[in-house]
Design a protein around this nucleic acid. Sequence first.
DNA 1: CGCCTTCGGTAACATCGTCACCGAACGCCG
DNA 2: CGGCGTTCGGTGACGATGTTACCGAAGGCG
Lengths: 223, 223
Amino acid sequence: MTHWLDRFPGFAMLEPGIRDTLARAGRVVTVRQGTTIFGPGQPPDSLLLLLEGRVRVQQTTEAGREIVLYRVHAGESCVLTTACLLAFEDYTATGVAETELEAVSIPRATFDRAMAESSAFRQFVFTAYSRRITDLFLTVEEIAFARMDARLAAKLLELSDNAGSETLRATHGTLATELGTARESISRQMAEFVRRGWVEQRRGLIEIADPAALRDFAHANPV
Amino acid sequence: MTHWLDRFPGFAMLEPGIRDTLARAGRVVTVRQGTTIFGPGQPPDSLLLLLEGRVRVQQTTEAGREIVLYRVHAGESCVLTTACLLAFEDYTATGVAETELEAVSIPRATFDRAMAESSAFRQFVFTAYSRRITDLFLTVEEIAFARMDARLAAKLLELSDNAGSETLRATHGTLATELGTARESISRQMAEFVRRGWVEQRRGLIEIADPAALRDFAHANPV
DNA sequence: CGCCTTCGGTAACATCGTCACCGAACGCCG
DNA sequence: CGGCGTTCGGTGACGATGTTACCGAAGGCG
């Protein structure tokens, strides 16, 4: 079994001293599926590094409407957590364990020390930040300009990749939340995809029948 | 005349040693209005701290459509620059000097050193990051869910604040870019605002006749 | 089986983006 | 001043999407 530190490519260049510090201070934890990792009024007290599983970060409006902002995958850190740790700012988004998680929890003091002492660690954290921000730029662009049919096609492929399967457990309602749109819109688009033979559906279940066609369609309608 | 370092509240707690380093290495520069500060294929080589002026950060699609992501104001740093400096990543957004700028340019080496040695400096940078990310969350939410009339009202008030005047130089086209929508949409909304007596317009010029009404309207339709 | 909850389908309407076109305002220059 | 080209704003028609209001079907559970 490799050490958890070796499961983060960004830590390959970590200085030996700080590596030991992290190895000693980090505690491997498991989190049950569906747990809210952080959210408004629920600030985290440590940095989470994901070994296994997936965290969904979403935003909820006053009116209760939701949209998925991004996902954190195994091998990444939850950058919003670091934002809070370092800047003491409140944020409005919620992080939910989409699967059962295996993660390493780095206490705040250790995090601060690693930031101070290790340029490799800083590099790791900033790369995560940078990726998040550029991702969000693309998200904004997509929401503002892309057509819903292309967005849905791309989302189905993304979820299929995440699940590692052509069969998805997803309702029209959850897809609507993914894309920040209305369920009815999803229903209409899905009906069209079914008509074209690209997908099949049963209640709560979506089978991607023709991934290549979906991919072509998504690529033919870039943001 | 106070030293430029004192014009950034986040630097109040700066350690004396690093303060001297920054003071010696930072060069005050001026940038002409309209200059592209950074953009795809035009990576920055230093961190910019804004003393005076305003930078507009916007995203452009393949098809040439544009949307304004956020603005950097005096007293802030351009966090996207730091993202690039620290993570060596490419980004897709463009930064434009919306006014003439007075800024302090911190060379990369000095920036790295300050990040390594000063917790106050790290705090400054992370606070900027954090604010950007939470801003972007709200932007996503707004684009996805808010009505265009409310968004336009809020944008007019924001631009009015920026300009420090009730009179704005803005065409329907630039407002459309601000909000990532179509000019026609803006024209129709503006006509409605004029009809209600909230604004007056001449070619390229908008006069906010009833800021309170606009504010009420914007607040009555939150995201 | 009966009941309740959730899910998906549909219609009617409002909003907004897209396309096409036009005239008005402005800048420039003869 | 007057002509001319460019930019700006207005408008109608249409398609795409969000909103509202239902309804029936599929499952879960007792």
